[in-house]
């Protein structure tokens, strides 16, 4: 297992949170992928000894704070998604990029479905399939990053 630097993992998570905070509006807000969850999944699959379910949960709490949601909504969704990622982590790292992407797409969907359920408990209304567009743009970003092998360079520099 590569001996990844803790600092880099946390720094990338903070950067992802910053990306999440960018004041998008209109159509951009609707297609914006969940940057934080993508980075979390990336590290959950590659460095499960540093980035575990607890880190995912903390990131979710921070998301709740910045979005002003009910405390614990995003945290619960992230924790469950992280658990599903960690459960098959050993097998997933042996998969090809395409196979991994399919599983990650599934995880992104699961995350959004959990959030949708929690929000409908608090009285929000489901507004059609466009709610799931961020998952699709998210997986495109994931595939683009992994396929272009940018991540390999990043990992190589950290070792």
């Amino acid at each position: 297992m590569p001996n990844l630097n803790r600092k880099h993992v946390y720094l990338s998570l903070v950067t992802a949170l910053l990306l999440q905070l960018l004041p998008f509006s209109g159509i951009l807000l609707q297609i914006k992928p969940d940057f934080l969850l993508l980075v979390l999944l990336f590290w959950l699959l590659r460095a499960p000894n540093i980035c575990n379910i607890g880190v995912a949960w903390t990131a979710g709490i921070l998301m709740d704070l910045v979005t002003g949601d009910v405390f614990g909504q995003n945290a619960l969704a992230y924790a469950i998604t992280a658990f599903l990622a960690v459960m098959y982590q050993r097998r997933l790292i042996l998969f090809t990029v395409l196979q991994q992407s399919v599983y990650v797409l599934l995880l992104l969907f699961v995350n959004q479905v959990i959030l949708l359920l929690l929000k409908s408990f608090s009285g929000s209304e489901y507004f059609g399939w466009t709610y799931f567009v961020p998952s699709l743009t998210g997986i495109m970003l994931w595939y683009a990053v992994l396929h272009s092998r940018v991540s390999v360079h990043i990992m190589a520099r950290q070792q």
């Binding site: 575990n52 379910i53 607890g54 949960w57 979710g60 709490i61 009910v70 405390f71 614990g72 909504q73 945290a75 619960l76 924790a79 469950i80 658990f83 929690l118």
Partner: peptide, 13 residues
């Protein structure tokens, strides 16, 4: 871990 953190977030919610 999942059980612990889910319980925590449910309590928070």
């Amino acid at each position: 871990r999942l059980i612990v953190f889910s319980t925590l977030s449910l309590a928070l919610m």
